[in-house]
Structures are given as structure tokens and as C-alpha cells.
Amino acid sequence: MTDRTSDRLQDDRTHDLRAEDLTLGYADTDVVSHLDVQVPPGQVTVIVGANACGKSTLLRGLARLLKPRTGTVLLDGTSVHDQRPTDVARVVGLLPQTPVAPDGITVADLVGRGRYPHQGWFRRWSAEDDAAVAQALEATGTAELADRQITALSGGQRQRVWVAMALAQDTDLLLLDEPTTYLDINHQVELLDLLTDLNREHGKTIAMVLHDLNLAFRYADHIIAMKHGAIVTQGRPADVIDADVVEDVFGLACQVVPDPVSGTPLVVPRSRHHVRALTSEAESPAAV
């Protein structure tokens, strides 16, 4: 098993997912236009931006859920649309925003469905599939839930099970569309810690869309900030994020200070009320 893991660690450095001149859209609107972007191998990439800036659309485009209007999504130099779907699915996994669990399915069975691209008409369930499912359950701390039904789980447990399913797919790249939505803050941190474990211990490349800026800046090795379907800035959060960038991307007046826990950028919004040392302004009585 250790051999396999180290193989994979070396392997993932070679998988390269990027988009060139990528335009994506719905109906007659382009949501993302002529974008060049790369998912840095072996890192945690987080895409942030205001609502409707195209961040989810970009992620969906990278996961080949949308057909590009211009340009291509390249996996290891070849367009993902020119490769066999199962070949791509063995390298790139996706956890969509609202996945659907068939009613009555157990955790173990759902996680097992992540093995789809590794099976075929003649290659059915194998010992390797068993091993991958068991590993995925263990890595996400869901092994003791294996026989439970999905519908009986809490939101936090459910999300971990979905991550387990994506893990069972055993891909080097994992794309996640707002995986912390609907989770309490403690479960958000727990899930992001888990994803960091997967990145550091299993060498997975992770790219995700997050809403919470402070968590995004803390957990990202590489941040991509988007506005109106274009990339405003990208790089290490500490290097590229400051109050001007946040104001530009989100239209939010703020201060950016070092996070007391992690040292990463922490966004402190300037609201109209509740601002210290503003006492004389008549139009902000709540400031007192």
C-alpha cells in the first residue's frame, strides 16, 4: 500500500489541468470569457469572487460539465473533450454543489459508486475497489457510518460521505464546488482540514470554490480572485490579497489584517455602523 501511495505522490506532479482562451456561458450570455488559467499541481487552489462572477462556471468548465464556446480545457496537454470520459474521470474528480443521493442508499454503497470509472463491462467489483472504498471511509472518518443510510445522517456527516465518494474515485485532482455550503462553522473547518490532509498526506491537487473569504485565504496555497468572468489576481494569498483587491472584487470597504491564528490575510469589513472612534457623525447613531 505504501508503494502505491508514493507512486501516486510522484504521479500527481505530472497531471496538469489548465484552460486556454476558455469562454463558457449559458443561453446567450458569456459568463467566463477568454480565460487562461492553470490549476497548480500538488496545491490547494481556492477560487473566490462575488456572486455571479463565474467562479462556479469556471469550475464546472474545468470538470467538463460545460462545453467551451471558445478555447479548450487541457488535461496533460490534451483537450478533456477529446479523451475518453472514464480516462479523464480517473484523474479528475468533482464534488458538485448539490449532489443527489438515491433514497435508501447506504454510505458504503454510495462511496462505492465513486469506483465507476475504474470498472467496466467486464471488470466489475474487485479487491482494489474494496480497498479504495475502505480507505476513503477511513480517511474521512465515516467508516463507522458504513451501514447507515445517507438520509439518516447530519449535514456534516453527509458532506464527509460525499468527499469519501470523491476519494474512492481515486483521482489526483479533486474539484469541489462550494463544499462548505450549508455546514456549521465547526463542520466547515473540519471539512477544510480534511481536504488539507488529503493534499498534504495523499498529494492530491485540490481546487475549490469557497464563499468564506477568511477560510479561503487561510486554506489556499493559491488563490484565484474573479470578477465579471475574468481573473483579477491570483497567487499566494499573503502575496496578492490586500484591502484594495477585496474592495475591487467584492465592492467591500475593508481592512485586511493578519489572521491571529494562521497569519494569513483576514478581511475585516468596514460596515456603515459599528465603526469604532466614529462618534460625531449624525447619520450613524448606532456607532456609539
Binding site: R60, P85, D87, A89, L94, P102, Y116
Partner: peptide, 20 residues
Amino acid sequence: GRSLNGLALGDDLAVALGQR
């Protein structure tokens, strides 16, 4: 059966799992 199992997870996940 195999294909329907994939579709049961929603179109997005089915595509992500490599299904046509």
C-alpha cells in the same frame, strides 16, 4: 443497470464519474 446507477447521482456527478 450500471449506467442508471450513475445517473441516479445527478447529471453533474454522472459526468464527473466519466459517464456519457
